[in-house]
Design a protein around this nucleic acid. Sequence first.
DNA 1: TGCGCACCTATTGTATACAATTTGCCCTCG
DNA 2: CGAGGGCAAATTGTATACAATAGGTGCGCA
Lengths: 225, 225
Amino acid sequence: MSTASDTAYDKIRSHLLAGKVRPGDRLTEELLSEIAGVSRTPVREAVSRLERELLLTRTETNRILVSDWGEDEIDEMFTLRQMLEGHAAERAAIRLDEDQIDELARINQELHDAVALDQPDVAGFLDANRLFHETVTQAAHSPRLGQILAMLVEQPVVLHTAREYSIEDLKQSARDHDELIAAFRARDPHWARAVMGSHLRRAFHVFADAMRDQQGQGAKGRAAE
Amino acid sequence: MSTASDTAYDKIRSHLLAGKVRPGDRLTEELLSEIAGVSRTPVREAVSRLERELLLTRTETNRILVSDWGEDEIDEMFTLRQMLEGHAAERAAIRLDEDQIDELARINQELHDAVALDQPDVAGFLDANRLFHETVTQAAHSPRLGQILAMLVEQPVVLHTAREYSIEDLKQSARDHDELIAAFRARDPHWARAVMGSHLRRAFHVFADAMRDQQGQGAKGRAAE
DNA sequence: TGCGCACCTATTGTATACAATTTGCCCTCG
DNA sequence: CGAGGGCAAATTGTATACAATAGGTGCGCA
């Protein structure tokens, strides 16, 4: 992970997610290379990766743009995730062995723990959450599916800086995972798919609401600049 | 386009599809830059693109490998396409206007024409077929979905060099499209999804059969070398 | 003989200089 | 005063040289 490309990727990504730029802003490779502290060559690789993940776009003439993530885009993304992760859960349900299910249960315990505190550990929650979903996706044994989901899942992190999630939402997520684990133990692919579907669809609404709040704040913040 | 990256992409891709290499073979950037006639810089971009499209892979230590497309991978790919293009057809059914449906009908006429001849025009058929599916995908108005499908649809072309498709299979494809168009005219998303699903699933079997035949031939060919 | 280490080679990663393209501005002309 | 054309600056695209890392081979030692 010590390569310059990865450094560039991480730094540029943080820069984007920290809200230093606004959707539609034009960026240059040189500017990004200053931010990342490496030359343009690895920056170009990082940009291409961020492009794949749709955090950046290019104009017809290859200028770099910050992507626009409105509610429609979020909806679209969660719809695709629901379809694909539902499929992944279905496959996982008939492929996971006992040990792997135990492992999922262990990971989900972390989720429960993270929100049981007075001050919920949101970062820890999100890490464990990602690991949980990744583990399920892995268990589907479908490399292309995994690749596509990796690309889609990257984006919601945009909002992780804003901790707009209510504790109750987080707790409900962990409970959804519990039910998913139950579906796995029962080896019931249809149940697994259904749980994953409703889990992600509700997540969409939580997320969209949080985004609306954050946008309001962002506007105020900017106005105050 | 006329950029060196695109040249590299085209030439390397042709090289792969022409069967000059076998799945699992290791390639080097330098070799590829000789093949493409450009320097390593654009080659690296081309490789990264081919990696996205899963025609190439990298080892843990970033060596370039020719991807392995066995029957499992083909199955996986068509399963994902069925899911995603089914979704696209569903969305398209409630978004297409009359003119666009007429356009689809026109494209599909090309498909019918291409196989009506004594010597079917396979290349023309495949081009028109791709255009048909792309048009439907476009009409779904879901950029991310489009991007993912573009990535998935790239691959089957691997076999286009082998014209193992029977005329009857091609004619059936065109008839499937007719039915899809009927579903669009009826503005029935469920019908559209179902037709697209069975269309792609049968295409999988045709494709897998063709691949098995080709592999047999390939083995003979190699043995004779 | 078989294992492991060291060195040499092959290959990928990065920086930099230069080429090609695009952008924005200013100037001219109608 | 506006439209168009062309020039200069900004930006992306490509080549090449060098740096860092991985692979492989042969030798020594048990």
